[in-house]
Nucleic acid binder design. Structure first.
Lengths: 197, 197, 197, 197
DNA sequence: AATGAATGAGCTTTCATTCAT
DNA sequence: GATGAATGAAAGCTCATTCAT
């Protein structure tokens, strides 16, 4: 039932999705949907929370598996987990990235807060990398915040891209982004790459 | 009149925006809106096209001004123009990035196509940079496509970020992204940077 | 179970009362309610009939106890019984007077018919009183009908009033109405009263 | 439009009345009803207030016309106006007496308050009559309150009765009630009557 | 050129009612 | 004997859209 809701919400958006459509896709009657989840808004909230939790858990698990490794290795693990998850659950990703972020809809603030947490986590990774590199956070705090936004945005965009083209594997997407993020275009053009680093 | 529409659409989204609100904000009567733009869908389309054209023009002008320069210089010029424009027209940017991309809404395909053009342009810049570096497109075409997606996504995300924090100037956002894109986190942590390149 | 129904119907009215609420207050499941009383309408009908019968019985018993007395004494007995009963069963009275009389609801006609019987009984009392006074029904039939309506309406109104103010005893309400009905305002103002008659 | 609403509300009650029915009877579309009166509740409130004001105005005008007369003459004038009005506007009377008083519906409290004002006015008439009779309020305040309730209830009941039987004129109903209220059943049976008083 | 007035269609939500167990 | 689970039908309300002026 929530799978149906996630799919419909992901495809149509919160406003355009009708409870009739969701109930029909779920193969149940509308009142049943209301019996379990009391309103459209609550249903949407439940979808968002479920998908967000699944995504965050997947990434956290990936990062945790790279436990004591260096910051770049942790980032690499997180990216693989992220692209793997978004590829596996395209509807969930569509709800989170494609719909819930839409301003004005309910839970937009909540979703923004969850994204902010992700950005904060990435920020901490960057700071850790800086420490590992030369013992101090050489980059100004403000710039690190911008870099984290850039990295997260890049990942989101690539998730959409990889999701639309089935031939792009999660690992490939993660590798491309990791190279980009670590050595930049300049480094890549010089033949360097993160993996070799 | 279209300014009002852009603002309302940007704040509320296509479905949640009501023609009453738009007409009221524009200070005209609803039938007048229908006289000029025949339906909500057409009105939305007109908004999207206007804002997309304005954004593309701004970026193109910025890049053109860096006419014969190297590819990285052209990218730098484009980024400055991009962040400058999104900061100046937050409503327009909200419509383009925050709403029109929502799947299921009319024109989502059209907006996706326009974004694809931007990605293609960035791709050509990357290819040009590769040529400048050592005469051949050393990176596989497929990887270049991914890099362009990453770069565009990073820029979009930073535009939202810079738009939400008035203290971040367009130049600062552009500089941060340019460094990130060119030398990567690794390079930045080693003290390198694009500007110095 | 019917107690619960009477209370809910009395407080909310037929339409606003929900079968869920009734079942919950009764502490049973909804299908059980349907097992015993087949529909909302029948349940309401059963409530009405039960309460109407209880009220009519109470008044009849009161009047019967004043068996061979004069008509005014019988009226006095009936009024005491009436106010005593409505005070004891406020929910039942609320259903009968406050809800079931509402036009358009099922059983409105039935309730009206029961009320008409009461009016007819009061009419017969008035006629009997006339016979006792001077051997013939001195008042035109039509006027007697109106008087009975007035008397019943006065009693209903006072039942609501006494029900809302716990300090008003059934006996006090009955006495006030009896005086009013027998000697009228004029008589009361002249210091006369029914009891002294 | 409000006439239609008054009729439907009067016949079916607040809950059972549907906005579709009201709109259809009014010969307009549902949204138009919502354009003028924003919700079902507001529409009902407007009906109640309009009918209550009309009734109160009618009675007040009747009483005022009997300006400096004695209290019983004022009561007589008020009763005639009351029965005249309820006969002329049966739908309005049905809404006020038959529906709006139903517990639990919106505005029940408001309607109860208006009725309380009427009772207070009748109370003042009774007190005035007592003063005219022998200079002091010989009846206990508490009893006067009960008498006013009885009188108002009698009038309400007779209005329903007279409304259901077209052959009963407003004047006749008023005369019957006036006699009843002034000399009581006892007095009427002795051949006395208010008019002769 | 511009609008007040009006509506068809659709959405969310509720509720009396019924099975399968 | 009793119920958890499920639904058909309807109601309140909104909105894009049009016409007569």
């Amino acid at each position: 039932m929530m799978d149906a809701a996630v799919r419909i919400f992901g495809q149509r958006g919160y406003r355009a999705a009708s409870m009739d459509d969701i109930a029909e896709l779920a193969g149940v009657s509308k009142p049943l949907v209301y019996l379990y989840l009391n309103s459209k808004e609550e249903l949407f909230g439940a979808c968002i929370r479920r998908e967000a939790a699944a995504l965050v858990d997947a990434v956290r698990d990936g990062v945790s598996a790279a436990g004591g490794d260096s910051a770049d290795r942790q980032l690499w693990a997180g990216l693989r987990a992220f692209f793997g998850h978004t590829a596996e659950r395209p509807d969930g990703w569509a709800v989170l990235h494609g719909q819930a972020r839409t301003q004005g809809e309910p839970f937009a603030a909540e979703v923004a807060a969850m994204r902010a947490e992700v950005v904060a986590f990435v920020t901490s990774l960057v700071v850790a990398a800086a420490r590992e590199a030369h013992g101090d956070p050489s980059l100004p705090e403000r710039e690190v915040a911008g870099l984290a936004q850039a990295l997260v945005g890049a990942a989101e965009s690539m998730a959409d891209w990889a999701g639309a083209d089935a031939s792009v594997s999660a690992r490939e997407a993660a590798a491309t982004l990791m190279n980009f993020a670590w050595v930049g275009l300049g480094g890549m053009l010089e033949g360097r790459g993160w993996v070799s680093a």
